[in-house]
Simulated scan of single mutants.
Amino acid sequence: MQRAAATEEPAVRDAVSAPDTEGRARRMTRRFPRLTRDTARPEGGGRAASGDAPAPARQWPILAVLGTVGLGLLLTALDMFRLGTILIGLALLGGAALRWARPDVGMLAVRSRFTDMITYGALGLAIVLLAMMAQPKPWLEIPFLDDTLHFTVRT
């Protein structure tokens, strides 16, 4: 009998009681539950403005990035390919800068701050560099990438 009590002691010591949905006390441990009921908000995923502000004002970081991307797509559709794609890349770089500079960016926070900054920054930089290398009359020539392109796409 004493042996069973000794094996239950760490679980009882770590457990706390909290009311469940019907008001009964239930034991909670530090272990992760087998079935999760909710997901945690990503770091920095709080409102970008106070709670009494209207919804667009609370989510201004993602609206700024998506608006700039939309403008870039519109310019690309209107036959200004290089300018439009550079604007899309700059929007992603702006998203990385907002993620770094602001403590709360609302829905712009998808993953951890580090992962979001690396993802937005790398994709934005790649889009800007590729847009600057686009033919005809590239603004930027990187020999390594130019050789890779000619090696993979033979004309």
Rank of each mutant, 00 (worst) to 15 (best):
Ala4Phe: 04
Ala4Asp: 10
Ala5Phe: 05
Ala6Trp: 09
Glu9Cys: 02
Pro10Trp: 05
Ala11Gly: 14
Arg13Phe: 12
Asp14Glu: 12
Val16Thr: 10
Ser17His: 12
Ser17Glu: 15
Thr21Leu: 08
Thr21His: 12
Thr21Asn: 05
Arg24Trp: 09
Arg27Glu: 09
Arg31Lys: 14
Arg31Ile: 06
Phe32Gly: 09
Phe32Pro: 10
Arg34Lys: 12
Leu35Glu: 14
Leu35His: 13
Leu35Ala: 07
Arg37Phe: 07
Arg37Tyr: 08
Arg37Asp: 12
Arg37Thr: 06
Thr39Arg: 08
Arg41Ser: 10
Arg41Gln: 08
Pro42Trp: 11
Glu43Lys: 00
Arg47Met: 08
Arg47Tyr: 12
Arg47Asp: 05
Ala49Lys: 04
Ser50Thr: 12
Ala55Leu: 11
Trp60Asn: 06
Trp60Ile: 06
Pro61Gly: 02
Val65Met: 11
Val69Tyr: 03
Gly70Met: 14
Gly72Arg: 15
Leu73Ala: 10
Leu75Met: 15
Thr76Gly: 07
Ala77Asp: 04
Asp79Tyr: 15
Asp79Ile: 01
Met80Ser: 13
Leu83His: 15
Thr85Asn: 09
Thr85Met: 15
Leu87Asn: 00
Ala91His: 09
Ala96Trp: 00
Ala97Arg: 00
Leu98Tyr: 02
Arg99Phe: 11
Arg99Met: 11
Arg102Lys: 03
Arg102Gly: 08
Pro103Lys: 11
Met107Glu: 05
Val110Thr: 13
Thr115Pro: 03
Met117Ser: 11
Thr119His: 00
Thr119Phe: 05
Tyr120Lys: 05
Gly121Thr: 13
Leu123Cys: 08
Ala126Gly: 07
Ile127Gly: 08
Val128Ser: 11
Met132Ala: 15
Met133Val: 08
Ala134Met: 10
Lys137Ala: 13
Trp139Tyr: 13
Glu141Tyr: 10
Pro143Met: 05
Asp147Gly: 03
His150Arg: 13
Val153Arg: 08
Val153Tyr: 07
Val153Trp: 01
Val153Lys: 06
Arg154Ala: 01
Thr155Gly: 07
